[in-house]
Amino acid sequence: MKTVFVLTALAEIAMLLALYLAGRKHVLGGLKRPYAGPRPLENAPRTAMIVPITGDTPAVRAGLESLLAQDYPNLRYVLVTRDEADPATAVARALVRGRDDAEHLLSGPSAACGQKNHNLLAGVAAVRDWAEVYVFCDSTHVARPDLARLLVDPIAQGKAPISGGFHRVVPLDASVPTLGMLNVCLFLHSLQPIRAITQPWGGAMAVTRQLFEEHGIAQVWEKNIVDDFSLGPHLAKRGIRSWPVAEACLDTPLKSVPYSIWEDWLTRQLLYLKFCTPEMWIGSLAVVWMFSVPPLLAVFGLLGAVTGSADASWWVGAVACYAAGFAAVGLVFRTLSPRPIGFWDWTKGFFASPIITVWCYLRTWTTFTMRWRGIAYKVTWGGRVVEVIRG
């Protein structure tokens, strides 16, 4: 038991430090290189920004306003909602009114894929004969004015036919769920520059029309639960990886996040992993093992020390060293936070993050149903939707 505790604790800390070192430069890229005004772009291919929307919240309004203020010189906007009943429809129509470079579409309800995919495909169909590049963005994050330019740059330069950004949680309070979501996003963000495993993020990615059509992306999306988790593996099988753009990072301001929202959001991300890349989902058991075993053995060891059935001095010292080491790693990750957070608040959020991650991972073993925005989807392997349940 002692040996297992020491080895797994060291492995957990080493894994997190390796993740930090792999992603530090990339994560800080957007923070250290903020928007500096319009700049020349030698080759500006005709680009359409397609934004699926649902709901009417302050986050949606702020996100849409930022997306509709891009400095890209050759850009058309397509905002897509499901139907008249969606509160986002009135918002989208008001925002595009009087603009020659923007339009709003109704996609109708999806019957065989995630509603987001259905909306995206409706947007693609509307600009297929005009656009050379599609930029896909979520509506709930705040974008810098040069987001489209940043995403199209590597494509225009011939570096890759697909590029992607990510998002950072901007904590507006120091609650554990807010900081927990910030930490999980930092972990995922740190994986982005590792091109051998990186996945495009649907909230900010650009794809050439040629790639989209030649590799049958529409045929993948029209049967799948999600856009990015299905696109990444589909292209990886063909030797195509997304080009990560550090500066193309959107802001996600959060405050007063309930634990239930944190759990549901993280469970949903892990369900996408389960459905679309089951081999990676199974492989994640190694991470779950490293996250769960050290704290569990620490609790058992301390209980044994209290009851006299274990070596009290060894366990108290070992657990103290583990807690100190884990807290130190947390302080390292704190340097990636977009806002300063106090030591104790950050430490609570950092210690809670692996615990909630393990819990959410375990939740994914009991379901093949994805629930999102009032719609339930029954999903099978590969992310294929087998039934859409409304109401």
Rank of each mutant, 00 (worst) to 15 (best):
A318T: 01
V306M: 14
G308Y: 05
L303Q: 07
Q269D: 03
P295Y: 00
A323C: 13
E263H: 11
T335F: 02
A327Q: 05
L270F: 04
L270K: 02
L296D: 02
T277S: 14
A298E: 11
G304P: 10
S309Q: 14
C276L: 00
F291H: 06
A310G: 14
T307P: 07
P295N: 09
M290R: 00
L273I: 01
P258L: 09
C321P: 07
I282K: 08
A305I: 02
T277M: 12
G304Y: 05
A310W: 12
L296Q: 05
T335K: 12
I282C: 07
S256N: 15
L302I: 11
V319L: 13
R268K: 09
A305F: 04
Q269K: 08
G330L: 11
A327L: 08
M280K: 13
P295R: 06
K274N: 02
P294A: 02
V329T: 08
A310R: 15
Q269E: 12
V319I: 15
P294C: 02
S256P: 03
T335H: 09
K274T: 00
L302N: 03
A323L: 14
A320Q: 10
Y272V: 00
K274G: 03
W281E: 04
G304V: 09
G304N: 06
M280T: 11
G301F: 01
A320F: 08
L285C: 12
F300L: 15
T307F: 13
G317T: 10
V306S: 09
R268F: 03
Q269F: 09
V257E: 02
T277R: 11
R334F: 04
V319E: 01
S260K: 12
P295I: 02
K274M: 06
R334G: 05
G283W: 13
T267A: 09
S309Y: 11
L302K: 01
D311L: 06
R334W: 04
G283T: 13
V319P: 03
V287K: 06
G317H: 02
A324P: 06
R334M: 09
G301A: 10
W315N: 02
Y322T: 00
P278K: 10
G325C: 06
L297Q: 03
Y259W: 15
T335G: 06
T307M: 12
Y322H: 13
S313M: 13
L270E: 04
L302T: 07
